[in-house]
Structures are given as C-alpha cells and as structure tokens.
Design a protein around this nucleic acid. Structure first.
Length: 818
RNA sequence: GCCGGAGUGGCGGAACUGGCAGACGCGCACGACUCAAACUCGUGUUCCCCUGGGAGUGUGGGUUCGAUUCCCACCUUCGGCACCA
C-alpha cells in the first residue's frame, strides 16, 4: 500500500531545504551562458491573486528549464510598492501607507514562496525603499540635466477620484476613464513635469532585433501614431501672424477653401474681427465647458464660427476665410488646419453645413468626373490633380511629392512628420511615491537637489485631509529648503513621480539591490543584461512597456545603459477568467483564491493546471472540475513511481514494448523541449500525461526492471521538474538519485529512438481516407503505391477505373485521384 | 469608421512547412473492484442514418490531388484606436 501524496508536508520540506541550500542563488559565472528571465513585478495589494500565479509559475517553469539546459539563470522578484492603494488604505483605515505596504509585502512574500518558484530572494528590490528611490530620483536628475525632463503649463488629465494628474497613456477607453479606478477624467490647466518621450518617437517604432509579439508592436506603433506629410505656412491678412498647418495631403492644397483654428488657438484673438468677437467668445466658452468626450464624439454634428479673418493660400494667393471649430484639436499638429472639403470628410461636413465652397482638385482614374457642387461625400482617394495650377495633370502616385517639392521651392512649406505620442506627464499630486528632487527658488528658478543630498525622503509625520490633497503640500516644514544655487529660501517640489517611473528600471535594480555607489553594479549589468525573456500582461503594452523602452534609450544616450532595447524577448500571458467566463471581481463573487487551492491540491497541481487549461497567451475560464484531471495525473505519477521504485521484479515484456516505450519517451522529450523553447505550456502538460498513460501500459506489459524503464523514469522526472518542482524532487530522492533534480541537466534526445521501421498510413481516394496500410518506413514510392492500389477497399471505390493520378507523401499518406 | 486577435465535439483545448481533424483533459456512458458508494482501474464517446456510408473546423466562394492551415467576400465576438488634419 502506497501512502497518499501529502503535498503540504512535502512541498514545505523542499521549500525549506532549497532555501537553506541557496539552491536558487544566481551569481555571475563567466563559464556559463546567462539567461535573464523576468516576470513583471507585483504591486503589494495584500493578497496574491490567481493572476499572479498565472503570470509567474509558467515563467518559473521556463526559467527552470533554461537552467537545466545549462544556462546561468537569473529569475528575480520584487515589489512595485509605491502607489495609490496605500494612500487609500491610509485614509480609510488610518494606517500609514508605509506600514500598510510593508505588512502586505511580508504577507505576499510568504504567498510567493508557496509557489515553489526559483526566485533569488537575495536580489529582491522594493521600489519604496529609500535605497531604491534614491536612484529613481537620481535618474530624474539625469534626465533633467540631459534636457529630457521639463516643466510646462498645459491642460492635463485629472482623475477626480485619485486626486492626481495622469499621463495620456493612463486614460483609457471611449469615456476617457482612469486606468486605475475607472473614473472619467477631467481637464485641468496645470504646471507639471514631463519627460520627452516624443524625442524617441521614431526609435520606439523600430522593433528590429527584438522578439516581441506582433500585437504589442502594433499597439505601440498605433500609439506613437506617426504620419508623414507637410507643414505649410499660410500668411494672414493681419501681417505678422502667420498660420502654420500640418497636412498629410499637400497634393490637395489647391482645394483648400477655408481654414480652421482650434478654439484654444492663440491666433484666434488676433485674427477675429470686432464684429465677430462676441460670437467667437461664446463659442470658445462653450468648447471649454464641454467634456472631451462630448467634444471628441465623431457622431456630433459639426459646429464652428467664422472669425472674420482671412488667410492667403500660398500656392495660388487666393483669399480664404478662417473659422474656428472644435473638431480641430489644439493637442495635435499645430492646432490649425487647411480645410479641403472635396477630399476630407470632416471638412466636407463642415462646408456643407456652413455653405462653403467644395472644390475638386483630385480626380481618381476609376471614378466619374467629380463635381464639388453636387457630390454627397468627400473623395479621400489619391488621383491625378485637376484645377491645381502648374501641378494640374500630375498623376496620383506622384502628387504628394510634387506638391511638397512645389511649396518647398516657394519657401512656404516643407516635408513634416507628426506623432500622436505625447510627452510623458510624470507629476502626481500624491504622497506615496518617489519625490521629484527639484527645488524652486524665486530668484534662481528650478534647480535639482544636489546629488550628494539624495534621497529626498518622504516625511513620516503626515496627515490626510478628506479633501484628498497631498499631505506633502500640507506638511508644515518639509517643503521649505535652502536654494541649492543661492542659499536663499526656496520651496521643494511637493509632487511625486508616476510609479511607472519606478518600474521603468526595476530590472536594473535586481542586478544589485544593495549596491550603494550607483543604481546598479556595472559588473552585474555587463553579465546579465539585457533581459532575455520578459513575461507579463498585455495591458501594459502602451504604458510600462513603452516607458521602459524610452527609459532604456534615454539612459543609453547618457552612457548609463548599453544596447537599444532592455528586453530581447517578450511574451504575454492572457487572463484567468472566473468559472462563469467573466472577468474575476469581488462583486461578481467569482474570484479564485490561490491560497485555498494550494491548501487543497498543493502548489505543483496548481502550477500544472494553470499551464494546462488553456493557451497561455489567451487565458480562459477557470474550471474547478477541470483541475481534477491534473490531480489525477499527479496522483498517477506519484503512484507509479512509488510502486515501482526499488522493486526487484523480472521484466516480462516483449522487445516491441520496450522499444515503443523508449520511442514514446524520446518523442515526448523532443516535443516538450520544443514547447519550452516556444512558450507552449499546455502541450507540455498533455505530452507528460500521454507519456504517463504509456508508462502504465508498459508496466502492465511487464516493462518494469528493464533499462528502458529506468531510462524512462529518470527522464520523466527531469521533464517534470520545471513544472512540478516539489514532487519531482521528492520522487528523485526516493529513487536514490543525487540531490537536487533542479541542478541536473536537461535530458539528451536520442533521435534514433524515434525512428520507426514501419508506419501506418492512410490511403485516400479523392481526398477521403478509405483504408490504412502498414508499410516499411523507408519504402519507396512505387512500393507504397502498389500496396495502396492492392487494397480491396480502394479498388471498391475506384469502381474499376484507372486512377488518374496517385500522390504519395512519404510516411504520411497516399491520395488516389479517380 | 480604422487596426489587430479569435471562431474546431456537451466543455477547455490539440493539429509542425498545405498531408490521416478532434491529441490531452473535463463531462458523460458502460464494465471491473465494492454489501453499497466514493476512489481507482479498463473500454467507449464529433454528428446523422447504421451493412456500409454521408456530413463536418463561423458563413459563402476560390486555389489545390489534398485546406482548420493559403486567397477573396461576409457574419459573430473580444481587444485597441478614433473629428489625429
């Protein structure tokens, strides 16, 4: 009688031993090739979620596989521990954010350990530690010195629930809501700190040399939103005030029949005539009052007001009216456009509403002759130019370049590129974040805190007002400092940094979390960087994953980092849904708690089921009945090993059984190796299940005690080890093998074991399988053909006719075409 | 509206470069064990008539000896973007 598998006891036993032996300590070893495997660091919200397990345990399995493959693997963990929930808890429960955060970290460390992951805890980094955020501040200063951090007054997105500004990337969806709390944001005009991400717009579009999912590349590419065109200067009738516009269609310049300024455009007040002032002011007020959602709604009917002013079209010196309308956004391009109603649908709708001229200047070949007076919609397609002065007749494929050349020669415009990407707004009006190390003096302006005074630490004696205002601002003494330039009285910046700043470089802090002279030890950097495989959720595609790329490139330009990209390979996992196929949430009551699962089934089963139940990049619904299959498999593994280890039985099986067991073993090894390399976890588990089923059959046939059996059990445990590290280690020990299984080599594939002498192939008649024959694997085409045609069933379907054609795919099938 | 992913049994999902669709698991059915049940073990399980066939990977077309895989059009669904000039 074999004892039951006591997962609680066995998992604890090995976790303690691995810890004591520092089995997962990763240190530089020049004799080995390195592999930096990184999983996105968690926020210490209090409890580990099944999503954390889903993200981390398959990543851990792959890191373990890489280690067995001979790599020196670094798989670190830490906490992204600044952020708003800590302040929420402070206000709600009257507990200091620091106390709350560090208590959560302590709790989550324990939960993370229960995964049995190969985390090197000596490299743990916590972004709210002074030793960490000292360097976050230091990086800010370097960016500032390099001209990549700057302060400006501008309309920014404000989350009224979080009481802070947000970066453009952190405002989501149609209703423009806060990425964190889903509250719709509002606009505020504020003086804030920005990073010049736009300096790197073009470089962020380049994914050469990195293996990132196409989907992420697309999201980032759309986010950067590069468009090529031309900037054109229109003179106005009021002298010094030129109007610059960006257009992607310089070929339509002759069709510009009016101009439109955004209501916020500074030129509006200059250009508008006295008699229009009142109307203009009213429109501006209305536009300001409207929310962005209303204003940017594409379904809304066009509105606008004539300013009374005129511009001169530089290509034909025509006098055209200047309007203001809220469909032109101040935040894109120059906040002003030339309107070509015949070839732009928005301009067309506006022109029809206000009865402005629609002039056709492009005539696509495949369309009837267009007529501006009667057309019912714009024609944005390219085509030969008409009514376009000297450029009339230019074919569509040359029209843009010809027009660009024309205005460049006239000195009134040039080729230009525009991006949707904005600079990264990093000021947050919150307490629990890394202070922005800047000081403002009335005389000297803004200056960085001298680097030898870093870190600027957060004061602990703070109070939260129900207004939600930052306690740093309200603190009586903290912000009053000496000006680093003149020594006079000055004020500290009381805003803190976006926490995405902390996570933009955590992979560097892991390298040497105790290093005091710099953010990281260059020796560690040289050995470990870049990250070889980065895993995490897709939701960060246009946030963290863009910020960290920007950060790396900016540091590269300062000589701090090397190479163009921080992470070579990226793989995203999907999301575990509730059993009802819905997103898990407390309110729906469909949350799966990993701690309870670990208690019930053990970490190994939870790990394996998470890998098994769906494709990792897709995720899917949890199924509490489905996990039972994984439990059964694990139990079968436990049973067969315990029942056969050390037994002295005489094998009774046939040579064919031994051979096919060995074939199955090496087939499995081959496919599992392939799957680990390609991050295909679900088929790793099913292959292990198949081989286990085969082992049960082989045992029944008397294979135990053969060298083939011994080889199979040895390799089986090695393949199991990355997936189910505890049970594999326990069985490895029971087999009397050398500790630890996790320092063993990945098994060697024997291709010759996979070679088969005979294959069973299907015979098709007209693409339908009608019979099967067994032929020698190396049989030549004619032999196979003859054997196929000899089949009775095939003859029946041929109905006495001669086959027109016979296709033989060696070792696979024969298709006879009637 | 634009961009991208997905659509395969009752369910989760396999299927390499165009080559035997449904691996593996859940569920279900039957059998063995048991006084009985659970566990475990074994067998079966795409659907429809059943001798043997016929149909079948969202729908309709196409290419091909052969299509879940490639091409075209469409439907559903999930993400992202959206008056971006």
């Amino acid at each position: 009688m074999i004892e039951n598998y006591n997962h609680g006891e066995i998992e604890k036993k090995w976790q303690n031993k691995w810890d004591a032996d520092e089995l997962y300590r990763s240190v530089i070893d020049g004799s080995k090739e390195k592999h930096y495997a990184l999983t996105m660091l968690p926020y210490p919200s209090g409890d580990l979620h099944i999503g954390h397990w889903y993200a981390m345990t398959p990543s851990d399995a792959r890191a373990r596989y890489k280690r067995m493959k001979g790599f020196n693997v670094l798989f670190p963990i830490g906490f992204d521990s600044f952020g708003l929930p800590a302040e929420g808890a402070a206000i709600k429960n009257n507990i200091h954010p620091k106390t709350w955060t560090y208590a959560n970290i302590a709790r989550m460390r324990g939960q993370l350990r229960s995964m049995g992951a190969m985390f090197d805890w000596k490299r743990e980094a916590i972004s709210s530690d002074e030793s960490y955020y000292k360097w976050t501040e230091w990086f800010f200063i370097q960016l500032y010195k390099k001209g990549l951090a700057y302060r400006k007054m501008s309309p920014v997105d404000w989350c009224p629930s979080c009481n802070t500004t947000l970066a453009r990337e952190q405002v989501w969806g149609d209703d423009r809501h806060c990425e964190r709390c889903d509250t719709p944001v509002i606009k505020k005009e504020l003086d804030q700190w920005f990073f010049r991400t736009t300096n790197y717009a073009d470089e962020l579009l380049n994914f050469d040399g990195i293996d990132w999912p196409q989907h992420v590349q697309t999201l980032q590419t759309n986010w950067v939103g590069r468009s090529e065109g031309a900037s054109v200067v229109f003179k106005t009738e009021i002298g010094d005030h030129d109007m610059e516009v960006f257009t992607t269609r310089p070929d339509t310049l002759w069709g510009a029949t009016f101009m439109v300024l955004s209501p916020e455009h500074p030129l509006v007040d200059e250009i508008s005539t006295e008699d229009k002032k009142e109307e203009i002011e009213a429109y501006k007020d209305e536009a300001a009052r409207q929310s962005d959602i209303e204003r940017e709604s594409t379904t809304k009917e066009k509105t606008g007001v004539f300013t009374g002013g005129y511009a001169i079209n530089p290509v034909n010196d025509e006098r055209i009216p200047i309007w203001i309308a809220d469909y032109v956004l101040m935040s894109y391009g120059t906040g002003a456009i030339m309107a070509v109603p015949a070839h732009d649908q928005r301009d067309f709708e506006f022109a029809r509403k206000f009865d402005l001229e629609v002039r056709v200047v492009v005539q696509p070949d495949d369309m009837e002759t267009l007529d501006g007076a009667t057309m019912e919609e714009s024609v944005p397609a390219k085509g030969a130019l008409v009514n376009s002065g000297p450029l009339t007749g230019t074919p569509g494929d040359q029209s843009v370049s010809a027009a660009t050349k024309f205005i460049a020669e006239k000195g009134t415009g040039k080729k230009a590129i525009n991006y949707k990407l904005r600079d990264w707004l990093i000021s947050r009006q919150r307490y629990w974040g890394s202070p922005i190390p800047m000081i403002n003096c009335e005389k000297c302006g803004w200056n960085p805190v001298p680097e030898d005074q870093l870190p600027v630490t957060l004061p602990e004696d703070v109070e939260w007002k129900p207004t939600g205002e930052s306690p740093l601002k309200l603190h009586p003494t903290w912000k009053h400092v000496e000006c680093p330039a003149c020594g006079g009285e000055a004020i500290r910046e009381t805003d803190t940094m976006d926490t995405f700043m902390c996570s933009s470089w955590y992979h560097l802090r892991y390298l040497s979390p105790d290093f005091h002279d710099a953010p990281f030890d260059p020796k560690e950097y040289d050995y470990w960087m870049p990250v070889d495989t980065y895993t995490g959720g897709i939701e960060h595609a246009t946030m963290h994953l863009m910020y960290t790329r920007f950060f790396h490139k900016a540091l590269r330009d300062m000589g701090v980092t090397e190479g163009h990209e921080p992470m070579t390979q990226l793989r995203n996992q999907g999301m575990v849904l509730g059993e009802d196929h819905d997103k898990m949430s407390k309110s729906k009551g469909n949350v799966i708690a990993p701690d309870a699962l670990v208690d019930k089934y053990g970490a190994d089963v939870v790990r394996a089921y998470l890998m098994f139940f769906s494709r990792w990049d897709m995720g899917g619904p949890w199924n509490s009945q489905g996990i039972e299959g994984t439990v059964r498999w694990m139990r079968r593994v436990w049973t067969i090993f315990n029942e056969t280890v050390g037994t002295n039985v005489t094998p009774t099986c046939s040579a064919e059984t031994k051979k096919s067991l060995r074939r199955k073993l090496h087939e499995t090894l081959k496919s599992i190796t392939y799957d680990f390399e390609n991050v295909g976890f679900n088929t790793i588990i099913s292959s292990l299940m198949e081989l286990m089923n085969e082992m049960y059959k082989a045992r029944k046939e008397g294979a135990v005690g053969t060298p083939e059996w011994d080889e199979t059990t040895d390799i089986y445990l090695r393949m199991l080890a990355p997936v189910a590290p505890h049970i594999a280690e326990e069985l490895w020990e029971r087999m009397g093998k050398e500790y630890s299984i996790h320092t063993q080599e990945w098994p060697q594939l024997d291709e010759s074991a996979i070679v088969v002498d005979e294959v069973s192939i299907g015979i098709q008649v007209n693409g339908k399988v009608r019979d099967r024959i067994t032929v020698p694997a190396d049989a030549d085409e004619d032999t196979v053909k003859a054997a196929a045609l000899a089949s009775e069933n095939v003859q029946k379907f041929l109905e006495g006719k001669e086959p027109r054609k016979v296709i033989v795919i060696k070792g696979r099938l024969v298709n006879i075409v009637k």
